[in-house]
Design a protein around this nucleic acid. Sequence first.
DNA 1: AAGCATGATTGCAT
DNA 2: ATGCAATCATGCTT
Length: 348
Amino acid sequence: MTFLSFFLLPSFFLSSPSSLRKHALNCHRMKPALFSVLCEIKEKTGLSIRSSQEEEPVDPQLMRLDNMLLAEGVAGPEKGGGSAAAAAAAAASGGGVSPDNSIEHSDYRSKLAQIRHIYHSELEKYEQACNEFTTHVMNLLREQSRTRPVAPKEMERMVGIIHRKFSAIQMQLKQSTCEAVMILRSRFLDARRKRRNFSKQATEVLNEYFYSHLSNPYPSEEAKEELAKKCGITVSQVSNWFGNKRIRYKKNIGKFQEEANIYAVKTAVSVTQGGHSRASSPTPPSSAGSGGSFNLSGSGDMFLGMPGLNGDSYSSSQANGGWQEAVTPSSVTSPTEGPGSVHSDTSN
DNA sequence: AAGCATGATTGCAT
DNA sequence: ATGCAATCATGCTT
């Protein structure tokens, strides 16, 4: 506002009827004297500079917005790379097994690109307007400097003021862009909203790992990555899956018994030779303590998961308390049996 | 529509 | 930082 009034004021100097007067003033013989007097007055009042060092500590709010826009790939270099979303998409489709959520991501990305486009064009507009405005003001000041003293500092100050004003406008733009991105994210990327069950194959792989490492179902980071790759999901999804699986398995072993047997047999078959395609023998929950004795609170151990045929049993025994003690302490280590004989159960 | 299954998130403990 | 437990929100089946 200050700057607006500032050069709305001199506009009457320029308006056509007064341009003549201005010229007359410039050519007036008293003009130099007048000018010097003005300079003197100005010197005395000292209202010129002083306020030039208005603090500008790089608004943290602005920094935040900038960072976010950069992180979101709106502000950074062109192309979809660099954004968290793109990275996630790349990770998800790394195995090339998940075409469906990459579709969602492309949808998301096109929307993001739209936002990005608007943002950039607006930004450019503002920048251009700012430049035009600045040069305009500079011209005006230059013009005026012929009739009144205008220190270069003042010019700088004016420019500073103008830039601040425009950056305030830019900040609003950034803010609303951020909001738009947030909304977009919550619409598209909030996995909770768009939960998709994993593919049959993926759960197969995960279950296979889980039941063949029933003694210690805590995949290492590398194992998780491997599984993630195989299943076409992210590592954190693998972690989620195992977290859920462990807790749900523990909570109701009976329910998972059949599944356990199926996968146990499966892995046994795949590990041993490849004959035996006999895949389901539910073995009723008759508290056969062969497998993991689950001494949780109430539930008696009613489970027969036939472990012991896991390839690596305790690959990385991190001495984690919970599972080991609760679920499967004994019998897991039965290396005496070679891969030939698959126990004797599974057959009713 | 109800009810279960399932992936994700949150709060807490370690 | 990681896992557990509870919970949420959605998907699927009945």
